[in-house]
């Protein structure tokens, strides 16, 4: 430690003085506090009370909502958590498999016009609401939908294939809805990788595929990571699509939470379920980040 004996006050380090531009983040900060921190705190508090502590003076602190989830004799809640994660995982993997080649193609496209056209095609579905897109899938996938009636009229099948009201239909619709997020994230990252790196690899004796695997793929992993986390987070919190496409076959945690709030009038248990989903999600995100970081030796997102 350095003792200073001079009487003049030390000037504050420049880094600590807020820039006048810092005020511009105030609206974002306000929004964040109002619509994330506040509701989240309410949810966290509710999850450890027996009732609403504001309106009900008899409400007491309890862990029974968490215990209810943990004990779960009927395995309903565990199954819902498992179904949520499974749907999220499958949706993410398929979005990655569809999105990566598309993003690579877009990022490496020479023609500006072509790039704009493909970008518009990728973004266009986002301009339609999720409900509309989900209904569109219903007309395609249901028992009397386009696919089943066509196949039956060709005599290829005698009774309709179970294309929706199950996990399959849910995943199909979720992939369609969230693939643009994957593509946009990946395109940005792949576009910043110098094409000459792959050319250098090829000139050193790597075939096209080998050059891609050795150079472009590892360098695009931060994009893979960001894109997958985005799609995973969006699909495990999806409510509308699993409700409409899943029928009675699929019960995800967001659906269960909506049930608890809407029909069972148990916001405290809903809060606990929300916290559980969040914690599980965080653990998965951190683990995923760790694994990718170790695999590539690169810095992850965190």
């Amino acid at each position: 430690m350095i003792l200073r004996h001079d009487t003049e006050p030390m000037p504050a380090p420049a880094a600590l003085r807020p820039s006048p531009i810092a005020w511009l983040i105030a609206p974002a900060l306000l929004l964040f506090v109002l619509f994330f921190v506040l509701p989240f705190s309410v949810m966290a508090v509710m999850s450890v009370y027996s009732g609403n502590p504001v309106t009900n003076p008899n409400a007491f602190l309890t862990t029974r909502h968490y215990m209810r989830f943990i004990v779960d004799d009927a395995d309903i809640f565990h199954d819902a958590l498992w179904a949520t994660l499974k749907i999220g995982f499958i949706t993410t993997v398929i979005s990655l498999l569809i999105g990566y080649p598309l993003a690579h193609w877009m990022a490496r496209m020479q023609s500006r016009l072509g790039h704009v056209l493909v970008l518009m095609a990728v973004i266009a579905p986002l301009l339609t609401g999720i409900v509309v897109r989900t209904f569109a899938w219903m007309t395609i996938l249901q028992d009397k939908g386009v696919i089943n009636t066509t196949l039956m009229s060709w005599g290829l099948i005698s009774k309709p294939l179970p294309l929706m009201y199950n996990e399959f239909g849910t995943v199909v619709a979720l992939v369609h809805i969230y693939v643009p997020f994957m593509v946009l994230t990946l395109t940005g990252v792949i576009g910043r990788i110098d094409e000459r790196l792959e050319q250098a690899a090829r000139s050193l004796g790597a075939g096209r595929i080998r050059a891609f695997v050795e150079v472009t793929l590892p360098l695009s992993l931060p994009g893979v990571l960001a894109g997958s986390l985005l799609v995973f987070a969006l699909s495990i919190s999806a409510y509308v699509t699993p409700s409409l496409m899943g029928g009675n076959d699929v019960l995800t945690l967001p659906m269960l939470i909506a049930q608890q709030v809407g029909t069972s009038f148990n916001p405290n248990f809903a809060g606990a379920l929300g916290m559980i989903l969040l914690v599980v999600c965080l653990i998965i995100v951190i683990a995923y980040n760790k694994i990718l970081t170790r695999l590539t030796g690169e810095k992850g997102l965190a």
Binding site: R196, L197, L219, T296
Partner: peptide, 11 residues
């Protein structure tokens, strides 16, 4: 081949 930007593999 030696490129203008060197094209070294950054990872």
């Amino acid at each position: 081949m030696v490129f203008q930007s060197y094209a070294l593999f950054p990872h």
